[in-house]
Simulated scan of single mutants.
Amino acid sequence: MSADQEQRTIRCLVGKVGLDGHDRGAHVIARAFRDAGFEVIYSGLHKAPDEVVQAAVQEDVDVLGISILSGAHNTLVPKIMDGLEEYDALDDTLVLVGGIIPDEDRDDLLDLGVAQIFGPGASMDEIIEYVEENVPERE
Results as ranks from 00 to 15, higher is better:
V40R: 05
I41A: 11
I41L: 14
S43W: 07
S43I: 07
S43E: 03
S43K: 03
L45M: 14
P49T: 14
D50I: 06
V52M: 14
V53I: 09
Q54E: 14
A55S: 13
V57M: 09
V57N: 11
Q58E: 15
D60K: 15
V61L: 09
V61Y: 09
L64S: 07
I66W: 05
I66N: 01
I68D: 12
I68N: 13
I68R: 00
S70E: 07
A72L: 08
A72N: 13
H73V: 03
H73D: 10
N74S: 14
N74E: 13
L76D: 11
L76W: 02
V77A: 04
P78S: 11
P78M: 11
I80T: 05
I80A: 08
M81A: 06
M81L: 14
D82P: 00
D82N: 15
E85V: 00
Y87Q: 15
A89L: 01
D92I: 01
L94D: 02
L96R: 05
G99D: 08
P102S: 09
P102G: 10
R106L: 03
D107P: 00
D108R: 10
D108S: 14
L110K: 00
L110V: 00
L110P: 00
G113P: 07
V114L: 03
V114A: 04
A115Y: 01
G119V: 05
G119R: 11
G121Q: 08
G121Y: 07
D125N: 11
E126C: 04
E126R: 13
I127E: 03
I127F: 01
